[in-house]
Design a protein around this nucleic acid. Structure first.
Lengths: 126, 126, 126, 126
DNA sequence: GTGGTCTAGACCACT
DNA sequence: GTGGTCTAGACCACA
């Protein structure tokens, strides 16, 4: 089960936080293909946000074919496997790292320091 | 001299890209204390953005005491050494790492993979 | 320029009609890569619908990389060419025809009759 | 006998898919006047949908006098010949063609291409 | 001026 | 019960 949690101070829009948490859940294996998501209403109540905010998040993922919805039934993790190809993944990895090094350099943080910090997270993820 | 370049597709606002590039230039030693920056007008023309966009970027850096504006003369890299305290730096380092671990996880990239990729950048930076 | 027009009686949601008309305009060459679309506000007023309805349409096309938006500047036809590959196009053509034949058969209309009717439209499109 | 089959991804509501398949069966001669249809319950089980969904489909066809329900006996193809008037048929033909020409245009498919593809189906149908 | 997000609340369609 | 659409109106962020 996903444990949604919103941070109003992060500056990241609510609907995007919801999207990220669903994708994160998929990437880490917490939810699997075919799993049903909370109903829009239930999640809206749980997160204390408006119905439309949750709807917007689900909708975006549906457009991206990551979720499938059946009116009157519910919303599910798409059965169409999201094929992030190895090539795409490598490209993404590189682009994330570049952004990362730049963002850090702005504050005088070296790649080496980043690596040391990152090692704390090494145990995580699926 | 700084070579400003904006990417409209990055999602990062123009004014923030300008700020980052100035800070990046300082962190990597491309510009030094006392150096003069392009005038607001010149930079706006060069980057093909609105005057207000450049103004906003300079203003924010001025507030942070990173830039100094001499009425009628121009804008300069602040002579007051910007002391990012060790504490601030640690906090920033942590927050950057968290952001990126999450961004990566969405694509199924593990912290370990990030570290391996980052090692390529280890020689860089001031 | 696109001439938007909504039919409230069609049963097709407004935002989808807007999407279809933009895609149609692109397919027929009425709008080209880089063209600016009407502002969300202007189109909302013109079509007498709510701002959010137009926003929703633009947003969906943006997610599909068909449009590009720059906050504070406007919405544009994406420069990333929407590559409907020849293969995809063939598949789409087949699927449309099947749907078509079935929908017609329900009313006792034969493929031959469809062809005769379609010939009236043969001159159209780019 | 009809072989019902539902496609959850088509976007067409289940009850409408059922309706279409019954009408299609009639148009192609697979079922004839007086034939008995599966009971609501049986069909619901077979298609793994809710009882109400099948009920809704049968109900709509009953209203159109296409089906007749005999209390306690079952549901049958109406004995009243459904006369789709020539006028109605022409109107339907036109509306179907318009819909599909538009749907195709969105993908850059011309009416001519549709015609060519449709010719493959020319032998079919009653 | 531009687009982005969010709320509150309504009504509809489908299962 | 489920999701889908739409409105009215507010406030924010960016150029």
């Amino acid at each position: 089960m996903l444990e949604f949690q919103l941070d109003p101070r992060s500056g990241v829009p609510f609907y995007r936080q919801i999207i990220d948490q669903i994708r994160f859940g998929m990437a880490t294996g917490r939810v699997k293909v075919g799993d049903q998501l909370p109903t829009v209403r239930a999640l809206a109540v749980q997160l204390k946000v408006n119905l439309n905010t949750v709807t917007k998040a689900y909708k975006e993922l549906e457009i991206q074919k990551i979720l499938e919805t059946q009116q009157g039934t519910g919303t599910f993790i798409g059965t169409v496997k999201v094929n992030v190809s190895a090539k795409e993944k490598r490209a993404k990895l590189k682009s994330i790292c570049e952004d990362y090094v730049n963002a850090a350099a702005v504050y005088g943080i070296t790649p080496k320091q980043l690596i040391d910090e990152l090692k704390k997270y090494e145990g995580e993820s699926k």
